[in-house]
């Protein structure tokens, strides 16, 4: 871990930022309060709900619990997953299935789904339910989440059916 008092560079969504914060500060605080990147949400603060999920080195992590000093690679948030002109397949599927209700958890859901599909590109319904159970949605959008993940999986595999 980096030492206290050392400014550190952190790459978020392809852009390098220099931040002067304590290495114990959770990544979520750096993203939201230092860099103004507010897509990742604060939910529980103890990795239980998934609203803060971002990618580090392409894999999902809970940014509320990850000390920024332990970040070992580039960070991607919902803002950097795709672009308005070229959305990520998971984002496209989320719109197609109108997954969101209140929307608070959805950035975390999408980041978890995108990471999940990288490690498991052709998941069963059971695997989808299992994987996304770790992201809580109080609106109960899980049936639409499952459909959207299946659609995104097919798109990412180049399956037109």
């Amino acid at each position: 871990m980096r030492q206290w008092g050392e400014a550190m560079n952190i790459t978020v969504n392809g852009q390098v930022h220099t931040v002067d914060v304590e290495p114990e500060m959770p990544l979520l605080w750096v993203l939201r309060d230092e860099l103004g990147i507010t897509g990742p949400r604060y939910g529980c603060g103890i990795s239980m709900c998934g609203a803060c999920t971002v990618h580090v080195n392409g894999l999902a992590v809970r940014s509320c619990s990850l000390p920024v000093g332990d970040v070992t690679g580039p960070v991607t948030t919902i803002e950097g997953l795709g672009t308005p002109e070229s959305l990520h397949a998971v984002q496209e599927a989320w719109i197609e299935h109108q997954v969101a209700q209140c929307g608070y958890c959805q950035s975390g859901q999408i980041m978890s789904a995108a990471s999940f599909l990288m490690t498991n590109p052709n998941p069963s319904d059971e695997a989808i339910d299992q994987a996304l159970s770790a992201n809580l949605c109080r609106c109960g959008t899980y049936p639409r989440i499952r459909q959207a993940v299946k659609t995104a999986s097919a798109k990412l595999r180049g399956d037109a059916s």
Binding site: S47, D70, N120, A131, A134
Partner: peptide, 13 residues
């Protein structure tokens, strides 16, 4: 690895 990596929530401390 098949669903949610342990490292999603379990950090190094």
């Amino acid at each position: 690895a098949e669903s949610v990596l342990c490292s999603t929530c379990h950090t190094q401390q």
